[in-house]
Nucleic acid binder design. Structure first.
Length: 699
DNA sequence: CGAATTGAGTTTTTT
DNA sequence: ACTCAATTCG
């Protein structure tokens, strides 16, 4: 493919993003603006035109799916094998670096990777030992994860006083947790990033080596990076300053996992010579959908102003339906889908139903079933997190890394082999006394006479099993898996479905060596299973990010649900909820349906619902209002939400004492808080409080 | 050691 | 209402 043909397929802004190959570049890519295309083409352009070797471009994504898709496209464009390229997730790239360099940090390169479940198990065990309420583990886990994402070590946290919500108990648990990880020669997901940062901080030579290796850095979904990830990028890019980050602050919806939108302004400060390119042409939605979603998101403060446009035309108005309860809501949606399907314009797979909370699927599934509409709930427990899969893999992990205490605990009595709590306590005690791993301690106990002979035999048998497995660790994964299944009898008496899962695991091992296989699945936490066949998709808005559908329904647009009542406390949280709504709306290509109910049964409680505050930010003119509530039940409040009187309708002109005449873009808020957005030719778009602005309306 | 009962807590989840 | 998990009993 010639350079010119890359350019032919891009609009002027996209071309600009592609051609800027020297120095730092920030690409603000609106929803549906062809971001992936730009990144992929840019990568190809750097190789073809700038003659960069493929291995000198570090490309970072957040999901394996995004990385795989990119590799697929590159393979297609350049006819190039992408197996050894540096295209991958933050975590896989860091793991690759650490496997090579981690000795410099005193870990063994055989380290295993703990997923969230392993992490939780370990934390719970520590809580138990500290005699703390175990149910706290979720909060503890997320706070530890947050600290790690901010590169705060236990020591730093201990001396941090009041910052970072200091809590003495948390500090002790955190410190102990890190010690246990180190003992087990295990890294959790956050460690993969933070230890790579530490590696570079403490070893100038190693950092230089990777700075030399990477002559260009490309980052996708930059708005989702956390502090640790940003620091990593900054260290690598600091010297040569050839880095391109692509993101959209309006689509930052993972704050709760440590993502920090502040990294966008931070990037601008750290790389003051950066160029900025905005991608505002949208290739996905109708203008109506863009206007409605744009009106909602424009209420957020401190965002990078973007005005998405399309040449697709206005399209149909957005449908906003007000319904009596969740059963009506579900029926309304099912019926609408059926109607549209029967008209022949859409297939079932063209529809997506999006929601804030998983719990909202229940009535939906019922209604869809009764209309005979095929559907698939996307998300939920992923393949590799199933119990049977994790059990089998725990054997494998323990064989490769005998120090993996969490895996040992997991399988020592699974399937049952008569090693119970009493015996386990003895092993724990021994391990603690001698400062050795549980497996070493188990060997000691097995040789001693401190347990009854039956138990002793059981221990010896388990020990032999693991040692035998260990001899297979240089071999093929499939072989080891078969051995595990035979030797343990795992699967005997199991449900058919679980046995099938195990079979699938074995066949997915293909020809991989044991270690490669383990690494792969430790970092591939979900098999990106988009629904096959013709079925309506049900998923959370979070999961829908990055996807698109011709027809989108967003349900449960009520106070307490979106925005969710537990997060809607700070303005930041509220902004994120608004972004979530925005992400949901911008998934739609042709038709967008929004629903609110008056009454909803939630956690067995019947609740009166108020329409989401975001609804009133939708300009009335862009909406079909559909009310399916029997007249006697209509509460005026619901109606007001959408029909709220606007003294300054969009498009009308006003005179400001200082800035002269401007065109009203928008007016929102209530009473004294009523705000107005006006475009003045002299000063641009201004946001004003109606009460103080002293405006004069002109016609 | 395993089964049954009681009790608490209910978001979102790329890796 | 329902799930998941810890504690208690056999």
């Amino acid at each position: 493919m010639k350079v010119t043909s890359f350019l032919d397929n891009l609009n002027p802004q996209q071309q600009e993003a592609l051609l800027c190959c020297k120095g730092p570049l920030l690409v603000l890519a609106g929803a549906g603006s062809g971001k992936t295309r730009v990144i992929t083409y840019k990568y190809a352009y750097l190789i073809k035109n700038k003659k960069m070797p493929p291995n000198s471009i570090l490309t970072v994504t957040f999901t394996n799916k995004a990385a795989d898709e990119m590799k697929f496209r590159i393979r297609d464009i350049l006819k190039m094998d992408c197996a050894s390229t540096w295209i991958g997730t933050f975590h896989s790239q860091c793991s690759r670096i650490l496997r090579k360099e981690i000795k410099a940090l005193g870990y063994s390169p055989d380290f295993c990777i703990y997923d969230d479940e392993d992490q939780n198990t370990l934390i719970r065990q520590i809580l138990k030992e500290f005699k703390m309420y175990e149910a706290l583990y979720k909060g503890v886990a997320s706070r530890i994860s947050y600290l790690k994402a901010c590169l705060i070590s236990p020591e730093e946290f201990l001396t941090s006083g009041d910052s970072y919500g200091f809590d003495e108990r948390l500090a002790r648990i955190y410190r102990r947790y890190q010690e246990e990880l180190k003992k087990a020669n295990a890294l959790d997901f956050d460690d993969l990033i933070s230890l790579t940062v530490r590696l570079f901080k403490e070893n100038e030579k190693i950092l230089q080596k990777y700075q030399d290796t990477f002559s260009y850095i490309l980052v996708d979904e930059f708005q989702d990076t956390n502090i640790a990830q940003y620091t990593l990028l900054k260290m690598l890019a600091e010297r040569d300053r050839n880095i391109c980050v692509v993101g959209d602050d309006d689509q930052s919806i993972y704050k709760f996992r440590g993502a920090n939108v502040g990294n966008i302004p931070r990037f601008e400060e750290d790389f003051p010579e950066r160029k900025i390119v905005k991608l505002e042409k949208n290739y996905r939605s109708t203008q109506n959908i863009l206007d409605v979603s744009g009106a909602v998101i424009s209420r957020n403060v401190n965002r990078k102003e973007k005005r998405l446009w399309t040449d697709r035309g206005a399209g149909e108005k957005v449908y906003y339906a007000l319904l009596a309860n969740e059963v009506d809501e579900a029926r309304y949606i099912a019926k609408t889908i059926k109607d549209l399907f029967l008209k022949g314009r859409y297939q079932f797979k063209d529809f997506a139903i999006l929601y804030r909370l998983n719990i909202l699927t229940r009535p939906l599934e019922e209604a869809l079933r009764s209309e005979g509409i095929p559907y698939k709930v996307v998300g939920g427990i992923s393949f590799y997190q199933r119990k049977e899969i994790k059990d089998i893999l725990a054997y494998m992990k323990l064989a490769v890394n005998n120090n993996d205490n969490v895996s040992l605990r997991r399988i020592i009595n699974v399937p049952q082999r008569g090693i119970g709590q009493a015996t386990m306590s003895k092993i724990e005690h021994e391990a603690k006394k001698k400062g050795i791993s549980l497996f070493e301690a188990l060997k000691v106990i097995a040789r001693s006479d401190s347990v009854v002979s039956a138990t002793k035999e059981n221990l010896i048998e388990f020990m032999k099993l693991i040692e035998e497995l260990a001899t297979l660790r240089e071999g093929r994964a499939e072989e080891m898996l078969r051995f595990i299944l035979n030797a343990t009898g795992y699967g005997e008496g199991l449900e058919e479905e679980r046995i099938q899962n195990i079979e699938e695991l074995v066949s997915s091992a293909e020809d991989y060596p044991v270690r490669t296989f383990l690494d792969r699945i430790s970092l591939y936490t979900n098999l990106d299973d988009m629904p096959e066949g013709d079925a309506v998709s049900l998923m959370t808005i979070h999961i829908a990010k990055g996807l698109e559908f011709p027809v989108v329904f967003i349900i449960g647009l009520e106070e307490g649900i979106l925005p969710y009542f537990k997060v809607a406390e700070t303005p930041e949280d509220l902004s994120e909820e608004r972004r979530l709504f925005y992400v949901g709306m911008t998934r739609a290509k042709d038709l967008l349906f929004l629903t609110t109910v008056r009454q909803r049964r939630l956690y067995s409680r019947l609740q009166q619902q108020e329409p989401s505050r975001f609804i009133k930010d939708i300009p009335r003119d862009y909406c079909h209002l559909i009310e399916k509530i029997r007249d006697s039940e209509v509460r005026p409040k619901c109606k007001e939400a959408v029909v709220a009187e606007v003294p300054y309708p969009a498009g009308c002109r006003v005179r400001h004492p200082k800035w002269g005449i401007g065109v009203v873009r928008d007016c929102y808020g209530e009473g004294d808080d009523k705000k107005i957005m006006v475009n003045f030719p002299s000063v641009g778009i201004k946001r004003l409080a109606v009460k103080f602005a002293n405006l004069e309306r002109l016609g």
